[in-house]
Amino acid sequence: MMTHRKISRLAGLLYLVVVVTGMFSLAYVPSQINVADDFQATARNIVSSEPLFRYGIASFMVMQVAFLLLPLALFQLFRDVDRSAAALMVTFAVVSVPIGLASLANRLDALSLLTNPYFGQALAPAPLQAAAKASLGAYGTGLLITKLFWGLWLLPLGYLVVKSGFLPKLLGVFLMLGFLGYMVNVFGELLVPNYTLTLVSNYAGLPAAIGEIGTCLWLLLVGAREPDRSTAR
């Protein structure tokens, strides 16, 4: 059987894949492509930077596969701490994957509409861009729902980190605060006009970033201490 340290290193490696591909697909690529309040400029950037846009899509796919495997590895690590919380953590994470991949299909549709000559010949520029804009809007809506579960899984994960004793409790606190930050951002974007322009939206995700990157690096570089079997549940 794999030791806790080996399992933690595997989980850390999977977490690193999630973090790196997530930063690339969700932060870097949009920063190079999207132009606020100017879809025509965004569409031109998609066409002129098609390889980068495709790399972003591929990176998101890799992230989802890694995020499907990550909670399974973490379950092996935390199942003796609290099996119910570990199962809840897996459920929230796994549920997000099909939602995220389904939303990504809309991003692929937008790319096809803007770069496939067939659509350029079949549709005038205005309705073509309108259809592409609608596809990207649907992607954004699906991603918002996905983020709900990205936040929810952090609550049981943070609780398990705090309770386990073989990772720093402070990381668990940041993970649980990250859950709150995700909830603020998801429902703020849903309910508050122009929420993404507010100061709160810029900082609400900071605890999650600290908690997740910190947990990733600790698992990968330090590893989890072996638990005391005499107190294991």
Rank of each mutant, 00 (worst) to 15 (best):
A93L: 04
A93S: 12
A93C: 11
V94N: 12
V95T: 10
V95R: 02
V95A: 14
V95H: 02
S96N: 11
S96K: 13
V97E: 02
P98L: 11
I99E: 02
G100D: 01
G100Y: 03
L101V: 08
A102N: 05
A102L: 03
A102M: 11
S103H: 05
S103Y: 11
S103W: 06
L104K: 02
A105P: 00
A105S: 08
A105M: 06
N106H: 14
R107T: 10
L108S: 11
A110K: 00
A110H: 02
L111N: 03
L111K: 00
S112E: 03
S112R: 09
S112A: 13
L114P: 08
T115M: 11
T115N: 08
N116P: 02
Y118W: 06
Y118E: 11
F119A: 03
G120S: 01
Q121A: 01
Q121H: 03
A122I: 04
L123R: 03
A124T: 11
P125D: 08
A126I: 15
A126S: 13
A126H: 07
L128E: 00
L128H: 04
Q129N: 13
Q129C: 01
A130N: 04
A131C: 08
A131K: 01
A131R: 00
A131N: 07
A132K: 01
A134W: 02
S135M: 07
L136I: 04
T141Y: 09
G142E: 10
I145H: 09
K147Y: 09
F149R: 04
F149T: 10
G151I: 14
L152S: 05
L152N: 02
L152G: 01
L152C: 12
W153K: 04
L154P: 03
P156H: 10
L157S: 12
L157V: 09
L157P: 04
V162R: 01
V162S: 05
S164L: 03
S164V: 05
S164C: 04
S164G: 11
G165W: 00
L167V: 07
L167F: 12
P168G: 04
K169N: 10
L170F: 12
L171C: 12
L175A: 09
L175T: 00
M176K: 05
L177T: 08
G178Q: 06
F179I: 03
Y182T: 09
Y182V: 09
M183S: 15
M183E: 13
M183G: 15
V184M: 14
N185G: 04
N185K: 15
F187D: 12
F187S: 15
E189H: 13
L190D: 15
L190Y: 14
V192A: 06
P193K: 15
P193L: 08
N194K: 11
L197R: 14
L197Y: 14
T198Y: 05
T198C: 12
L199N: 15
L199W: 14
V200N: 03
V200L: 13
S201G: 06
S201H: 13
N202M: 13
G205F: 09
G205A: 09
A208V: 03
A209K: 00
A209E: 13
I210M: 04
E212S: 00
I213D: 00
G214A: 05
C216G: 14
C216F: 09
W218D: 15
L219W: 11
L220A: 08
L221V: 13
V222E: 08
V222L: 07
G223T: 05
G223C: 08
A224Y: 10
A224S: 06
A224F: 10
R225L: 11
E226D: 14
P227R: 14
P227E: 13
D228A: 04
D228H: 13
D228W: 07
R229M: 12
